[in-house]
Nucleic acid binder design. Structure first.
Lengths: 219, 219
DNA sequence: TTAAAAATTAGGGTTTTCCCTGTTTTTTTG
DNA sequence: CAAAAAAACAGGGAAAACCCTAATTTTTAA
């Protein structure tokens, strides 16, 4: 009897998670030893005595999202391989997840054989970059050539900028956001100007659309 | 041997669909006889010789979405019960789906027991309105009391209002939108005011968020 | 411990958005 | 056809968003 490879599944949608686990259990040489509904939950449940080899992880989750969890794993258990799982095929999401340390990326409408392939490749060669991911990555690199720091700029929003961005996705005025963040209106105006530059937009609506497209806010 | 109840599953995310099917197969008295990746696909595969009793249907799908498919079923096979399935717990989505003929609504992070309960109730009493749905429906009705035609108004955006709404989800100014629509700025301002009332928002950002949440615009 | 860098605050002006109250024009309907 | 309803358009004003430049404070790093 061969011993099975251990998988963890982290996704906040219970039905999806349970379904996924049920699918994986059919694979003869994989076993799900851990399931969690978000990053925080995952870290709590993680047992150092029995670590998973692969973590199948959703990106957008409450409490602690895929990016943060991936970063945490990178620094605490670098040998655990994260396979990111998302509905979004947005370039920035993929790039960001890979930057956070994910070894592969798979979309939710992939089929079963692709999931199996991803598992195998992660174990054999250590990563899984399918056609979709490769295309996005290449496109991203070609953008770097055009604009030296577009991608890095995207990733590097300060905490305040991120908070401001999230609060902007509402009917609050900048004035109200300033109060909520205990900052002067002028500081807020600075965040706005900085974000306009970084995100390459020119209006609040553009900023909001960007935030939504790239999963910075929950809808 | 009891004969099983036939279920159909319609969802564009293959992994989720397969997982769901795998879960349902564990239920002793339910069987999945049909799966499809969107409404159009579903209608094509539907075999009048062997109809499902329940269709578990996602709302947002390419080609033909949940609302349209539900409407089609209502007129062609009214006895088939649709259980809507969505990540969104947005009131308008729920109301819209129920208006389209769905007999129940379940969110993707429900657990397995709730799904089973939904199936049972659909078969026994013909509908499944859980706490979430009831709350939204009641809230929606209470809005009707306040404003006689709030819900119908939501559905009834004129072509111009819809075009304006879509164009507003961009960095265009109202001035530019007016030009694009060959209307005066003041007419556009009228659309805006009307939409603010109908959608119950008070800023352009609110309007844009509403449009995105309720699928009026492609991201 | 200082110079440099980054964050915060400020002044002040332009544009856009928002919100009234109307009038005119077009469409619908009895 | 005439009345009613709906759509388009308008003036004008207040609030919010946008966009400069620049001073001050805080943080970082040599």
């Amino acid at each position: 009897m061969l011993d099975k490879h251990n998988i963890a599944v982290v996704d906040d949608h219970t039905l999806f998670r349970k379904g996924l686990i049920s699918l994986i259990k059919v694979f003869p040489n994989f076993d799900v030893i851990l399931e969690a509904s978000n990053g925080k939950d995952f870290i709590q449940r993680l047992n150092p005595e029995q670590l998973p080899e692969i973590v199948l992880m959703d990106i957008s989750m409450p409490e602690m999202d895929g990016y943060a969890t991936c970063e945490w794993l990178k620094s605490h258990y670098p040998s655990i391989k994260v396979l990111a799982l998302s509905t979004m095929d947005a370039e920035t999401a993929i790039i960001k997840m890979i930057r956070s340390g994910a070894k592969g990326y798979i979309v939710k409408d992939a089929d079963l054989s692709e999931l199996k392939l991803a598992f195998s490749e992660l174990l054999s060669i250590g990563f899984f970059y399918n056609e979709l991911v490769s295309r996005k990555v290449i496109h991203s690199i070609s953008k770097i050539v055009e604009d030296n720091d577009a991608v890095t700029a995207l990733q590097k929003l300060s905490d305040n900028e991120l908070t401001f961005l999230r609060l902007s996705c509402s009917e609050k005025t900048y004035q109200e956001i300033a109060n909520e963040m205990f900052k002067s209106e002028k500081t807020i105006d600075g965040y706005r100007a900085e974000l306009f530059k970084k995100l390459n937009v020119s209006s609040r609506v553009g900023m909001v659309m960007y935030a939504i497209k790239n999963g910075f806010v929950e809808l």
